[in-house]
């Protein structure tokens, strides 16, 4: 199942530290993520999960530590360059381009994130866009304004837009929050189908069954520090993880 230890990591985070004023949100976090891995990220509210995602995607500048992606130091790169290098994300609270249709949202990604030397015709790009939307089950909504989408459709639209950037690493930030249990399964199946040798996925989630089912490996953060990392069952059984979640 797991890649051999000798294989170079896709993403290497070393002693990453992020402070907000006097508050340390991430404290010397180090972790390697292997190509093709399905990586679950858990932890109580305010433990630094989203902060870590923001540091990987470039939304935040970090105080110390490095982020290496595909053997390149990207610690100082702005977010749009990281996106072009192959890091895509969804947001905890969906952030669609609300004045645009679903199709136009994806076209932004195809216009800006995908760098090729070949001339891509607009017909080709439309095909790419439609095939992503079909895969996400959103084809019928292509020409609908994002303002009219339901919660689950918004979640899928964000994943579709992220996929349109042709990512190597897809980060899903609580894509299932606020969904009904059948919708959770729907989105989870979608994420499972996207994962593979070409696409590595980091999933932040509060719904434990989803994390257990999805992840090859799970990491638990508390107060900006890693308190456990390993196979899902091991992490769940960990004393400190249980304490962190039960708040004792």
């Amino acid at each position: 199942m797991m890649s051999p230890e000798t294989e170079a990591p896709l993403l290497r985070i070393s002693t990453l530290t992020k402070r907000f004023g006097g508050f340390t949100a991430l404290d010397t976090v180090s972790v390697d993520i292997r190509p093709g891995e399905r990586f679950g990220l858990i932890g109580p509210n305010g433990s630094g999960k989203t902060t870590l995602i923001n540091c990987i995607s470039g939304a935040f500048r970090t105080e110390a530590g490095t982020v290496i992606f595909r053997d390149e130091d990207i610690t100082r790169l702005p977010p749009h360059i990281r996106t072009r290098r192959g890091i895509a994300r969804s947001f905890q609270i969906p952030r669609p381009f609300k004045s645009m249709t679903v199709a136009e949202n994806l076209m932004v990604a195809l216009d800006f994130a995908v760098v090729t030397d070949e001339v891509v015709s607009s017909a080709q790009r439309r095909d790419t866009m439609m095939s992503i939307l079909t895969r996400m089950g959103l084809a019928s909504k292509a020409y609908v304004s994002t303002a009219k989408l339901s919660q689950v459709e918004l979640r899928k639209m964000e994943l579709a837009r992220a996929m349109a950037t042709h990512p190597k690493l897809l980060i899903s930030d609580e894509a299932m929050a606020g969904l009904s249990s059948s919708e959770v399964d729907e989105v989870l199946d979608l994420l499972m189908s996207l994962a593979g040798q070409d696409i590595t996925i980091i999933m932040i989630e509060h719904i434990m069954q989803a994390v257990m089912r999805f992840s090859d490996r799970v990491m638990c953060l508390e107060a900006g520090k890693i308190i456990a990392i390993g196979k899902p069952a091991e992490v769940m059984a960990n004393q400190r993880v249980q304490e962190a979640y039960l708040g004792t």
Binding site: G58, A88, P96, F112, V114
Partner: peptide, 20 residues
């Protein structure tokens, strides 16, 4: 298209590859 995207949401635009 890029300007419209960043007008709607600057962070989302950056993370979609737009050099805002």
């Amino acid at each position: 298209r890029g300007l419209q995207a960043l007008k709607d949401d600057e962070l989302a635009a950056e993370c979609t590859g737009v050099p805002t």
